[in-house]
């Protein structure tokens, strides 16, 4: 059974530990602007919403890539950017209907969540269990994926 990130915004306090952990793991520095998971703030409602890639089956980013630089990780099911192959064309950043592949001008390449190879550091860092790593079927991601279905370019099939 593959696992996925389950995000429960109701539990998020906006402490940004997940962003810090992500940035440290992937970029080697504490810099929330480099994080692949983002916590969005709804000021009026006083709510926080952590948000990152759902590793969706459709994988628009992967199919749009002209140089095969996004591949499926056989162990975790995540869609990983192979930095050596990425030319930085950014087509994946507009193809992903969730907006979860982003361009990093410093490296000239794109970055996205790769579940840290199966040990997601955002999960480890979250003090309130707002982000957990659980069996894929059990997650609220289903809803998000349903929405992804609406973004398909085909009907039927």
């Amino acid at each position: 059974m593959q696992k996925s990130l389950n995000i429960d915004p109701a539990k998020c306090t906006g402490c940004l530990q997940c962003e810090m952990a992500c940035s440290l793991e992937n970029e080697g520095i504490f810099n929330t602007s480099k994080s692949r998971i983002k916590v969005f703030t709804f000021h009026e409602e006083g709510k926080f919403v952590p948000y990152t890639c759902t590793q969706c089956d459709e994988a628009w980013c992967m199919h749009a890539c002209p140089v095969d630089a996004i591949v499926v990780n056989a162990a975790t099911g995540s869609k990983d950017v192979v930095a050596d192959l990425c030319v930085g064309c950014k087509v994946c950043t507009i193809a992903c209907p969730f907006g979860t592949v982003n361009y990093n001008a410093d490296s000239g390449k794109v970055v996205k969540c790769d579940l840290c190879g199966g040990d997601p550091q955002c999960v480890a860092a979250c003090p309130t269990d707002a982000i957990t790593y659980v069996d894929a079927n059990a997650t609220g991601l289903d809803k998000m994926r349903q929405w992804a279905g609406k973004t398909d370019t085909t009907v039927g099939g």
Partner: peptide, 15 residues
């Protein structure tokens, strides 16, 4: 803009 631009496609295509 380089962050989360894909949602523009998502919102358009999902109507």
């Amino acid at each position: 803009l380089t962050q989360h631009v894909g949602v523009l496609r998502g919102l358009i295509q999902s109507k």
